[in-house]
Simulated assay, not measured.
Amino acid sequence: MKLEIRHWQMLKAISELGNVAQAADALGISQSALSHRIAEAERRMGGKFFEKEGRRLKLTPAGSLITQAALHSLPVLERAENDFEQNASDQNQIVRLGVASYSCYHWLPEFIQYASQKAPKLKLQLVASATQNPITSLQHGSVDIVIAPGYLATPGIIPIPLFEDELVLVTPHDHPLSHKPYIEAQDLSQEQYYTYSQNVLPGFEYERFIRPSAVIPQQVEVVEMTDAIIELISAGLGMSILSKWAVDAALQSQRLSYTKLGEKGLDLAWSALIRESEKRNSASKELSKLLARWYQK
């Protein structure tokens, strides 16, 4: 190989942090040393990784390809080293977990207590950044398990079913729509509506409930934090369609009300996603099975 590990780490740091100054700080070297490292790597490979765009560095097409390899490979190598150290010294095994689509953790303390009783050597580490890019986080090795609603078949990723949920209209407590047995999309046409994501997610409310009706709420605002949406709705400033599980704590405290979507409702299945390459007795698989048993219980 022409590049050393420090060159791969350099590519990953610059890609993730966006500029040389921050990348140098993260790597513990000066900006001058980092510039020399870039030049050295380019000499070894016989081509440019970056080109200047104002004060920033922009990846060349060839640089983008090799950086993607760095982003994929380094977390795998780091995880392998960590697994070796844990197995060699019989230490606790850390499993990194994220939640896709919704930033909700009301369930976490109770599950940690359950897991510590059933598998005391397994330690859970929450990775909040996995919420926005769950599959990529799994593929790159920055997270080991993702609790995800729905599931799109993805090579190298397997689902372990956890529980059945539903999408519901969430409104302020005692809102007129909360007294209906169910709503139709037309009921949202004049309402202030908060959506969790500006992207159309397969299997969610826009695809299955709003678009088929050809009626779109006139006042739509993107708020990418579940807790923020809950606070806005609780204050009487609007409504949203969310996973019932994701807002369970607020519903139980009667801060919010919910109403079924359509006469038959909209189901939503949740799974624990893990890498297919995980060994049969890996910590990730063990924790996934604990999650499934806990939810069934």
Rank of each mutant, 00 (worst) to 15 (best):
residue 100 A to H: 12
residue 104 C to V: 13
residue 60 T to D: 01
residue 96 R to W: 00
residue 77 L to I: 11
residue 135 I to D: 00
residue 53 E to N: 10
residue 102 Y to A: 14
residue 77 L to C: 02
residue 87 N to P: 00
residue 73 S to G: 07
residue 90 D to V: 03
residue 78 E to T: 01
residue 92 N to R: 15
residue 109 P to H: 09
residue 87 N to E: 05
residue 103 S to N: 11
residue 115 A to R: 06
residue 72 H to L: 15
residue 82 N to H: 04
residue 135 I to Y: 14
residue 127 V to C: 11
residue 122 L to V: 11
residue 113 Q to P: 02
residue 107 W to I: 03
residue 44 R to W: 00
residue 118 K to A: 13
residue 118 K to M: 15
residue 90 D to H: 15
residue 47 G to I: 10
residue 51 E to S: 15
residue 132 Q to M: 14
residue 83 D to P: 07
residue 68 Q to P: 02
residue 104 C to T: 14
residue 126 L to F: 04
residue 91 Q to I: 01
residue 78 E to K: 05
residue 47 G to N: 03
residue 57 L to P: 09
residue 45 M to I: 09
residue 127 V to G: 08
residue 70 A to C: 08
residue 106 H to Q: 11
residue 59 L to P: 06
residue 68 Q to V: 02
residue 95 V to M: 04
residue 130 A to P: 02
residue 90 D to N: 15
residue 111 F to V: 11
residue 116 S to L: 13
residue 96 R to G: 08
residue 54 G to D: 03
residue 136 T to D: 04
residue 45 M to D: 12
residue 75 P to R: 08
residue 82 N to V: 08
residue 64 S to H: 07
residue 52 K to M: 10
residue 47 G to T: 11
residue 124 L to V: 13
residue 51 E to D: 04
residue 79 R to F: 13
residue 109 P to N: 07
residue 56 R to K: 14
residue 55 R to E: 00
residue 68 Q to D: 13
residue 108 L to M: 13
residue 87 N to R: 15
residue 101 S to K: 15
residue 124 L to C: 03
residue 45 M to F: 07
residue 70 A to Y: 02
residue 138 L to K: 04
residue 70 A to F: 01
residue 110 E to C: 09
residue 80 A to S: 05
residue 109 P to C: 15
residue 73 S to Q: 12
residue 71 L to M: 10
residue 53 E to F: 12
residue 101 S to Y: 11
residue 50 F to V: 05
residue 60 T to V: 12
residue 129 S to N: 09
residue 124 L to Q: 00
residue 67 T to W: 02
residue 138 L to G: 06
residue 45 M to L: 14
residue 113 Q to T: 14
residue 78 E to N: 09
residue 105 Y to K: 05
residue 84 F to V: 07
residue 118 K to H: 13
residue 107 W to K: 14
residue 135 I to E: 00
residue 102 Y to L: 10
residue 67 T to Y: 04
residue 100 A to F: 08
residue 104 C to W: 00
residue 123 K to N: 00
residue 57 L to Y: 02
residue 54 G to P: 08
residue 87 N to I: 14
residue 87 N to T: 13
